[in-house]
Design a protein around this nucleic acid. Structure first.
Lengths: 196, 196
DNA sequence: AGACTCACTTGTCAAATGACAAGAAATCAT
DNA sequence: ATGATTTCTTGTCATTTGACAAGTGAGTCT
């Protein structure tokens, strides 16, 4: 198993020692998701806690009008699962789909819970991940309130440049809360802002 | 101790039995926060996990320009603390302030951790609360992307009518991501939408 | 009472963004 | 390859929202 990246990841919070990380990683099974394949479909229960090793994914919901709204992007080194569906065992409102071919490692809800039960340090790790996701959402919310569309785009470009390279414009636009034509204009503008 | 509401709350996820709920509630101490008093100041570590029994509170941050941005409202029956600061033991970026006189029950981080350690059912309860908060933020984010300011205001009015009665207009406006004059116009408009 | 502050409203104008539609460019299926 | 589909860009115009400023009214302090 070439799960070195997962083992590193488990140690990243400093609460899990190398040997324990190796043991925990042993409970994960490998998974690959082909480009455009769905990792999770709305209506299903999110049951895989998936460490994404290589590739990019996105999550999206539908607004009342039926349009797709991208709610998250994921790159290598992140864990992909729908929090509410996974922990509450209820159908997901969101879809998760691979933007590129993806590879990684997963465990099921049941296995995760077993590990949480038997390993306090892994439980702490899981909480830390949840808290981190929560904080990330909060800061995105703050950006949505205080920044202009252009600023939000530039922030995404800076903080997540790979995403911009792999996601289609309309997904990025709905993630930023703007229309695709507006984003197209923002892109055109930021290049020529000095010219004309 | 008249902590019946807290005891009920602990049982609300169905994972904690009445007797256990009573014992856990016994670890909480009572707290009152006077109107306009700060429950938490930016720069401090959030160290109280506070079950708000009666009253209303809000959380707010400052944007780069220095203006207050309200990030959350809390009413009776909710738990008030800054997730990231509390669990990561880092200074809070947010302030939390009482909108009205408040009463409730709290435990410190250390005590909470002790309970998490000794009582699996309370640990599950804590996770459930975190997951609920996470899901709430996600749906607020979705509303911010897909709904107009008027729709967001009407949703708040419907889902949290008490808040609107106790928070000043400008706090509500920044929570909704609009200026106070826009909110004032929205309010004026929704009354007269049938008239001229 | 009188002067102050604070919360809210309203007017005017500008800026940001959306709606809709047409066209160019890239991608895909057969 | 070719036609179909999707993706992205661009034009025109409408709508939403913001910026700024003035005004009203309610409460507060001395």
């Amino acid at each position: 198993m070439a799960s070195e990246k997962l083992i590193q990841f488990l140690q990243s919070t400093g609460r899990i020692a190398p040997q324990q990380a190796r043991e925990i990683a042993g409970s994960f099974a490998s998974l690959r998701v082909g480009k455009n394949d769905f990792f999770l479909r709305a209506g299903k229960i999110s049951d895989e806690y998936f460490f994404l090793d290589t590739g990019f994914m996105r999550a999206f919901a539908h607004n009342p009008a039926g349009d797709e709204v991208t709610t998250a992007f994921y790159g290598g080194g992140q864990v992909v699962f729908e929090v509410s569906s996974f922990f509450n065992r209820i159908p997901s409102q969101e879809n998760m789909q691979a933007l590129t071919d993806c590879t990684g490692w997963f465990i099921t809800f049941q296995e995760l819970n077993g590990l949480f039960h038997s390993r306090e340090e892994f439980r702490e790790f899981g909480r830390s991940l949840l808290v981190k996701g929560y904080a990330g959402l909060k800061s995105r919310m703050l950006a949505m309130i205080t920044e202009s569309a252009t600023e939000r785009y530039e922030r995404l470009l800076k903080e997540n440049p790979e995403v911009v390279q792999h996601a289609p414009l309309k997904s990025i636009a709905s993630y930023l809360g703007i229309t695709d034509s507006s984003l197209s204009r923002i892109r055109a503008g930021s290049k020529n802002s000095a010219l004309k």
